[in-house]
Simulated scan of single mutants.
Amino acid sequence: MTAPTSDATGIDWTEHTLVRDDGVRLSCRDWGRLGIPRPSPSPIPRPRSRTFLLLHGLAGQAGEWDALARLLRADGHRVLALDQRGHGASERHPADTSRAAYVADVIAVLDAPGLDLGPAPAVLVGQSYGGHAALLTAAAHSARLAGAVLVEAGPGGAEPGLLDEIGGWLRAWPVPFPSREAAAAYFGGGPVGDGWAGGLEERDGGWWPRFDPEVMVASLTELVGRGERAWWDEWAAIDTSLPLLAVVGENGIIASAEYDEMARRRPGLRGVCLPGAGHDLHLERPDVLHRLIAAFVAEMP
């Protein structure tokens, strides 16, 4: 099912709904189908057109990528942003919240007949939880990809107690928020607050998250465990010929020791640390992230 959607600039992207074989409904924004011509603000020469699939973080949604998607589309690329299972307009209560299920969803989008993506390999861009999904997809399906960009994501293990900490934070949201503005203020204001508030829906006289906190905790359990799980074997399984870019924030969650180990095990890894940026650097500095990605894809084989 396809439905055009409007924002302040008019019809800007198309929403597609896919249904997996197990009945799970997936929703994604397609920024390339309408073919709206826009001048490119990038000083970097345009590479050939590519397909991008953008993957948000835990408790996020496809709209977080709107600014970056517009910039990539202006460069002539086909851009899709997926509401991952359990999030946004996709299935809110999937029975399977394993990491393998999230990877299978990525492949299902790339293979969806209605999207007409063609045989050319895609570039994955994922932030945090979505970056980890991009990592695992690259490990299992390197041949399907032209490259992967990991934003504030890596294969290192989590600190003990992180699962309880995140679960407690999500359950503590004072929902419903009385207004979107109140929600943005609660999340710290600025572009990050606006980005998180943009993931809410208005119903029953208030603004509510478009996810179930318990589903988020279930989705995170395999990823972080109780601090004992790491994903270095999957990192090593990524084909050495696949271009990889890691973008981290100076104040983000990827410690320098983890990045150094990523680079040691993967000599061809390209990495950038953005001074002053935090974990949600895709919301804070989409223009900078765009320039880094544009340069990355321009140098791809």
Rank of each mutant, 00 (worst) to 15 (best):
P4H: 09
W13I: 00
H16Q: 02
L18Q: 11
L26Q: 10
R33W: 09
G35E: 03
R38E: 10
R38S: 10
S40P: 09
P41D: 02
I44A: 05
R46N: 02
P47H: 04
R48V: 13
F52M: 04
F52Q: 08
L55G: 13
L55H: 14
H56G: 05
W65F: 04
R73Y: 09
R85T: 03
H87N: 11
H87S: 11
S90E: 03
P94S: 02
D96V: 03
R99N: 14
A100D: 15
V109E: 10
V109Q: 12
L110N: 14
D111W: 05
G118V: 09
V123N: 01
Q127P: 11
Q127H: 15
Y129N: 12
H132D: 05
H132M: 09
A134P: 12
A138M: 01
A138D: 04
A139M: 03
A143W: 13
V151R: 05
G156A: 12
G156L: 00
G157H: 00
E165V: 01
E165Y: 01
W169K: 15
A172G: 15
W173A: 03
P178Y: 00
S179M: 08
E181L: 01
E181Q: 10
A183V: 10
Y186V: 07
G188W: 05
G189C: 01
V192C: 10
A197L: 05
G199L: 06
D204F: 01
P209N: 12
R210P: 07
A218Y: 02
T221G: 14
R226T: 03
R226N: 11
A230Y: 02
W231T: 07
D233L: 06
S241N: 14
S241K: 13
L245H: 12
A246L: 13
V247R: 09
G249N: 10
G252D: 09
I253F: 06
I253L: 13
E258C: 04
D260W: 06
M262I: 08
G268I: 06
G268E: 14
C273A: 10
G276W: 08
D280S: 15
H282E: 07
R285L: 06
D287K: 10
L289D: 00
L292Q: 12
I293S: 14
A294K: 07
F296R: 04
V297G: 09
E299W: 02
M300W: 14
